[in-house]
Nucleic acid binder design. Sequence first.
DNA 1: CCGATGGTTCGGCAATGGCCGAAATCTGGG
DNA 2: CCCAGATTTCGGCCATTGCCGAACCATCGG
Lengths: 234, 234
Amino acid sequence: MTEHVTLAAADVVPVAALIADAARSSMLWALSDGRALTAGELARLAGVSAATASEHLAKLVAGGLVAGERHGRHRYYRLIAPEVVAAMEALAVAARPAPPRSAGEAYSGKLLRFARTCYDHLAGYVGVAITDALVERDVLRLEGRAYAVTAQGAAWFAELGIDVDALRSGRRAFARACLDWSERRYHLAGALGARLCERLIALEWLARQPGTRALRVTNAGRRALQRSFGIRVL
Amino acid sequence: MTEHVTLAAADVVPVAALIADAARSSMLWALSDGRALTAGELARLAGVSAATASEHLAKLVAGGLVAGERHGRHRYYRLIAPEVVAAMEALAVAARPAPPRSAGEAYSGKLLRFARTCYDHLAGYVGVAITDALVERDVLRLEGRAYAVTAQGAAWFAELGIDVDALRSGRRAFARACLDWSERRYHLAGALGARLCERLIALEWLARQPGTRALRVTNAGRRALQRSFGIRVL
DNA sequence: CCGATGGTTCGGCAATGGCCGAAATCTGGG
DNA sequence: CCCAGATTTCGGCCATTGCCGAACCATCGG
């Protein structure tokens, strides 16, 4: 099913399972500075019997996270995959209560990957934020379930290479206001929304993620969004 | 036991446990681009019955990773902690077979935290690397289980503020070659090794980690190691 | 070659946790 | 107000996994 490159969800399960035990977790934590510790020390440290510790260590070894080597009467175990400490740190971050995020602000200041398209127009945090910014700059104005383009708005779009009048005369709804549930806010859809999305991708402010509806904000895009809209991404 | 600030090992267990299940893992993965999906979609996607999916989702909600909201007849779930995707990615990295690393090169290019002291001298990757560099620059020469300081080597140490002759006359073994098991390589120990370690800390190339034998390479140290020894840290 | 000490394996117990079908809820739409 | 479809809750089954004490191995120091 999964191809070469894809990081499948399945990959993470075994490692997560190894970490997902209090005893093993403390062992890994103790080893995380790169020292090699004996089985006994680790047992004491994790607060389990030597027998139990031994089993845990066997699993960690089988999982390729640590390696053990006999040295005299002791057996020293050491972390063999420094990557796991990064993973544990990331987990610790995810574990933090996480500043109570209100729905609207959920992804504010956060991630690239949380931009996305809704059919053919921008949605998600970025979509909502851009729409907001355009309303605030009096380019768009919300009227019921649709947006109206102001006079100066037409100029703004023209500058971006979008001919508003041409779109208005098309068959498709011109500038609908689409409710994005996950942000619980309206954002620009319809012909104009689709065209805008198309342009921002052409300008390489945004890039499509292969195979998904997700969009990545490019580095250029990040600067541009900050400059043009005061939107801070990342 | 644990203080305020410390990221305890215990913190990661609950989150890891949530991820450490195939069904939940695929759900999280599916949600990782920020879209909101219905319980049904997620059930199908994870390949479990609706009942099972519901239980999993309840756990994810309880764990604070996702939030669900009724919308019409469906219930949409979305990821509310973008941090978990970072964590999953980190786990995926740790899961990779990890390029077969020869012991010597294990932490090369890697982590700060993998420097450490062995009693009073430098060990770990940094210790080995520095010793290697000194041998290569003909400051030290390995002779059996000890190092000899060359003529130019004495000058080099002097420049660093270390009086080699004074150390040589001391009671303690002058410059032993200590085998670091975790690197399986020799590195400088004895009086000279201890003095060198002391100096590098005084110079603030290295900093002690409170309460452990671990050392952190400072930013200045990183530059200095690169410049003086061609050692790339981080 | 013997005891002492650290480590691993074995046997068995108990708890956890995943899975499902059936029944109970809830929502939108006649 | 009732039906159909989407979800959740309930009960019960089964596999996994953690934990421990005891027996078994290996190594070191005489």
